[in-house]
Amino acid sequence: MNAVSVLRDTELIFRRQLRLALRNPAWLIIGITQPILYLALFGPLVKHFVSAPGAPADVAWRIFVPGLLVQLGLFGSLFVGFAIIAEWRAGVIERMRVTPVSRFALLFGRVLRDVIALLVQSTVLILTGLVMGLRAPLGGVLFALAFIAVLAISMSSLSYAVGLALKSEDALAPLLNSVAVPVLLLSGILLPISRQSAPTWLYDLSRINPFRYIVDAMREVFLGVYANSTVLWGVLVSLGLAFVCVMVGVRRFQIESG
């Protein structure tokens, strides 16, 4: 199978999925109001918790918004597995698997749709942040969006793989929650976890959580720092995670059976 047909197949699946998503107005409305709600209801509290005395007010935003972006990415993408169960149940997955279409495209066409959706949501969130007082360099914001895109690739690939493996919403929901919540808490998304602020065991636990590295790196780029080891680690962990998750996802589309 050559690269051209893989690309063509991916585009075909992507367009189909995008068309289906746009056809559903509820999805659009929720997708866009959600980030605004996050900021509007949560943002006002943040300044008091995060900002060190004497620090400029917008530093709080630069710590808070990257965390929210990752949270949006985590929860937004992790739950796409429900859609694949519905598609599987309707027989769509099997119908496509019996055609010569590339298995990678079956996964990645869907993942790309999720990436686009998340980037739109993230942009809405950042724009809302700007209105509320966030100040961050444009380069940093774009860098952060790249992190979010890679994160979406990981999480939605993983979610599709798990959804197709379990084939049951009843099994998927508790599994995702039981993974997502500790991951979220241990990533320092809501409150940064540092050597000073956290007990050693909590700090050590957070170091084995890949999201921790991604959140830290995104906070750096929001502050305009692009070339330090925190950012490098963030990039490496993001890409590594995405690679593993896509492999797992493609494998699932290859062997999916039963």
Binding site: R16, R19, E87, G91, V92, P100
Partner: peptide, 28 residues
């Protein structure tokens, strides 16, 4: 080969023409 599954395999939110054309394109 072609295959028609016992329970079918269409997406309710697609139109008839979309499904047929997508399927044809899946076969390149």
């Amino acid at each position: 080969i072609g295959y028609v599954a016992q329970a079918g395999g269409t997406d309710g939110a697609c139109t008839v023409a979309e499904e047929l054309i997508t399927q044809a394109q899946l076969y390149r």
